[in-house]
Computed example of a mutant assay.
Amino acid sequence: MKQLFILLFLFASVSAYSQSRFSKNELSINGFRNPSIGAEYRHNQVSFHAGYYPTAFKSGENTSFIKTGLTLWFLPVGKKENPSSFYAGASYLRGLNRDYENKNAMGFEAGFRWMMWQGLNLRIGAIAVAANSESLKINPTPGISYSFFFK
């Protein structure tokens, strides 16, 4: 019980500090896999995304999904107005082809977003995809996006 209290306290402390470092609103156009090829809206430290998600569970075989989910942003890094930061999220995926065609799946991901220049950013992370009758798959999730910030 003591460890749970300490973890909650640390998370709340980091969250309170982090919130002051993030812009209030952000709209991102995502051009590659992470979180999906689509759009993402962030308010303070929570974002919602939706789009097309291609991945390769086997070399040379592209598996496609429609993906939507929520992401939590934390531990901002650097002194920029819009800092780089870590993220963790959960997503619903709907398979479009191969072994996942018309199947529901869940994705859990974590990683780091590097704010390169103005709104241009790169992401690197990993996703775990779970679906009924399929083994758990873990894949890298690189991404490139451009973000617009609003007060």
Results as ranks from 00 to 15, higher is better:
Leu4His: 05
Glu61Phe: 09
Lys2His: 12
Phe150Trp: 04
Ile66His: 05
Lys103Ser: 13
Glu101Thr: 14
Phe112Trp: 12
Phe11Tyr: 08
Ile138Phe: 05
Gly38Asp: 05
Lys67Gly: 04
Gln118Cys: 08
Leu120Ile: 13
Tyr52Leu: 12
Gln3Thr: 13
Gly125Glu: 01
Ala126Glu: 02
Thr141Gly: 02
Gly111Met: 06
Val14Asp: 11
Lys58Gln: 12
Lys67Arg: 15
Ala128Tyr: 00
Leu8Trp: 03
Leu93Asp: 06
Met115Arg: 12
Tyr41Pro: 03
Ser47Glu: 03
Leu75Lys: 04
Phe65Met: 05
Arg21Ser: 11
Asn82Glu: 14
Asn82Tyr: 14
Asn97Cys: 11
Ala56Trp: 03
Gly51Arg: 06
Gly31Gln: 00
Ile127Asp: 06
Lys58Thr: 11
Gln19Asp: 11
Ala88His: 01
Arg113Ala: 03
Ser135Asn: 15
Leu120Cys: 04
Tyr41Ile: 10
Pro76Ser: 07
Lys79Trp: 05
Asn139Pro: 01
Asn139Tyr: 07
Thr68His: 09
Leu122Phe: 15
Gly60Gln: 07
Ser84Cys: 08
Ser59Pro: 11
Pro35Trp: 03
Glu81Val: 12
Ile144Ala: 14
Ile124Val: 13
Ser28Asp: 01
Ile6Glu: 11
Pro83Asn: 06
Ile6Tyr: 09
Phe112Gly: 05
Asn139Leu: 15
Gly89Val: 08
Met116Thr: 15
Asn121Asp: 10
Ser28Phe: 03
Gly69Leu: 01
Ser133Gly: 09
Ser23Lys: 06
Gln45Pro: 05
Gly60Cys: 09
Pro83Arg: 07
Leu7Trp: 10
Phe11Ser: 08
Arg42Ser: 09
Ser20Ile: 00
Glu109Phe: 07
Phe150Ala: 09
Val46Pro: 02
Gln45Cys: 06
Pro54His: 04
Tyr92Leu: 13
Ser13Trp: 01
Trp73Glu: 08
Lys58Pro: 00
Asn104His: 11
Ile144Gly: 04
Tyr146Gly: 09
Tyr52Asn: 11
Arg113Asn: 10
Gln19Gly: 08
Ser135Glu: 15
Ser133Arg: 15
Leu10Ser: 13
Trp117Gly: 14
Leu75Trp: 07
Pro35Met: 04
Lys151Ser: 12
Glu40Pro: 01
Lys2Ser: 12
Ser20Phe: 00
Val14Gln: 14
Ser59Leu: 05
Ala105Cys: 11
Ser18Phe: 01
Pro83Ala: 10
Ala105Val: 08
Tyr146Phe: 15
Ala39Phe: 14
Phe86Trp: 15
Phe5His: 14
Lys80Val: 00
Asn102Trp: 10
Met106Cys: 13
Ile37Gly: 05
Gly119Glu: 04
Ser59Met: 02
His43Pro: 05
Val129Ala: 08
Ser18Leu: 07
Tyr41His: 06
Ala39His: 05
Ser59Ala: 14
Phe74Met: 10
Phe108Trp: 09
Asn44Asp: 15
Glu101Ala: 15
Val129Arg: 04
Asn30Ala: 06
Val14Trp: 11
Arg21Tyr: 01
Ser20Trp: 00
Ser59Val: 08
Asn104Arg: 01
Leu8Cys: 13
Ser47Phe: 06
Ile29Lys: 01
Gln3Val: 11
Phe108Ala: 09
Leu70His: 04
